[in-house]
Amino acid sequence: MAETAYWEAIRRAHDEEMANDELVIAMGEDIGVAGGTYKATLGLYDKYGEERVIDTPISENSYTGIGIGASMTGMRPIIEIMSINFALLALDTLINAAAKIRYMSGGQIACPIVMRTPGGTAHQLAAQHSARLARMFMSTSGLRVVTPRGPLDAYGMLKSAVRCNDPVIIIEHEQMYNLKEDIPDEEFFRPLEGAEVVREGSDITLIGYNFSVHLCLQAAKRLEGDGISAEVIDLRALKPIDRETIRRSVEKTHHAVVAEEDEAPVGVGAEIITGIIEDCFFALDSQPVRVHAADVPVPYNATLEKAAIPDANDVYQGALKALGKI
């Protein structure tokens, strides 16, 4: 076991997968000579060369498309998009091509690309660097979407994503790259499907993904001080969603809160709560609660930004509301 930062875990996964398979390449802006904005490919340019660690021009749609085309010949490209806002430029090749080629071709051609991108608010990055957008990808047939909450999943899910035969979107988070966790020294894989109960409890279920799992864990700790036992679920994958793990928990606790960093409309909370209503409506003792961002572009001003984005206190308050205590 070694204490490893989130970015180091991603870097290690790149390194091992590139050493394991010549067909694995990495591409993105500043990932080569510069080592990556988040250091996810640090040193790999020197180790694997410019043909496998490819510094791209600022042309998100087409370099994603080139990665997709390469994947159609059997390559395994790991494509970094510096911010999820910039992934909007790549939606044509990603959603119109990668997500549909297997289906349109009657199963003949796979597009095993991995797209990694940070999707979340950090500190005053303003509206064009703070998008979350998970909801856009999770609503697209033909994609897998995963949200590693820490170094263990960041490493293990990236390795699985490289080997999986489907296009996989890995949504990271600017505030998590320096998050540390002990991870095993020997190689391991973490699956791309399945939610995880990260804290057991009996009174209420708090459901998060990506950074909001940490907000749920903080809220659970505070609830414990109030004598309330909260269970916390990390969704881990937003497509497909593991509804079974959610159902089992809600049937035990009878109360549910979903914490999402994104705006509410047509979002993760809406999808999860719909699933709860469809799967275990009669297990509920109260209406589920969504904790979410304000329906605004993310403001620059620090006070306004804080007001727009949910924090652990908002999740805590959401839990009290679900439990009828406020």
Binding site: G65, I66, A70, T73, G74
Partner: peptide
């Protein structure tokens, strides 16, 4: 599409095959 003959598809988004073709060449 016909993967058995490396015919890698017809696409309805005008201009989308440009990068896909470059990617096929890269592969």
């Amino acid at each position: 599409f016909d993967a058995s003959q490396n015919f890698m598809g017809g696409y309805a988004l005008v201009g989308q095959p440009f990068p896909l073709a470059a990617g096929l060449a890269m592969g």
